[in-house]
Write a protein that binds this DNA or RNA. Sequence first.
DNA 1: TTAATTAATCGTAGTTTTACGATTAATTAA
DNA 2: TTAATTAATCGTAAAACTACGATTAATTAA
Lengths: 109, 109
Amino acid sequence: MGTTKSIKFSESQNRKAELFKALGHPARIAIIEFLINQNSCVCGDIVEELPLSQSTISQHLKELKSVGIIKGEISGVKTCYCIDENVWAELDDMMKVLMSSYSLKNKCC
Amino acid sequence: MGTTKSIKFSESQNRKAELFKALGHPARIAIIEFLINQNSCVCGDIVEELPLSQSTISQHLKELKSVGIIKGEISGVKTCYCIDENVWAELDDMMKVLMSSYSLKNKCC
DNA sequence: TTAATTAATCGTAGTTTTACGATTAATTAA
DNA sequence: TTAATTAATCGTAAAACTACGATTAATTAA
């Protein structure tokens, strides 16, 4: 009600949300798991594997790339996608901090 | 085209995506951080703290609750929200498994 | 009882997401 | 050069998300 709120969303909160959001779709989880578990990082192989069209998968790849979780490298007529180790480490750290900041003493119901 | 794809999104992939998606908004990150860092779990205090209307925050709380991350308990005229320790543990475990399944040997670009 | 407080829900407008087929651009092969 | 392959982009329809004010329901206080 017209009262000035004491916080705005911080950069850190926005970054966390952005990373989580990028992971918030089963197709993108499937892409990440594919990149981790398969030997391939070729775009066409991902398209082959997932039950979605090429253009849709391309869109999902773009979204993962835009937040930095994966990076792509054109190699001839094909494109290779890999997890970005630095952003992966950022995500790992972010989760560790978030997870460990909760303790059962916060529990009130 | 018309080829049967070899995987569908698994339950596990859908659950991961659902949890990440719920965390994929700065307001919901702010809510979680509030519940962790403040002594309060009262709905009204969250509304007081965030730069969004009461109805919008109620919507965000509902979304976090629907995937199980938080739980609510009505106490008189107020409602108390807390992180659900079991789902928090599920999330923690999920992240540990996902994070550790990646190693630099996956790196190809 | 009546009034006040709290939070959920309703209705809705505007935006974003997701999906697809079609097209385009770039590279490689014939 | 021409044809084939690969993946990005365009255009678009349908669905989901986000935000808000208004209303409702439930409880507590007067």
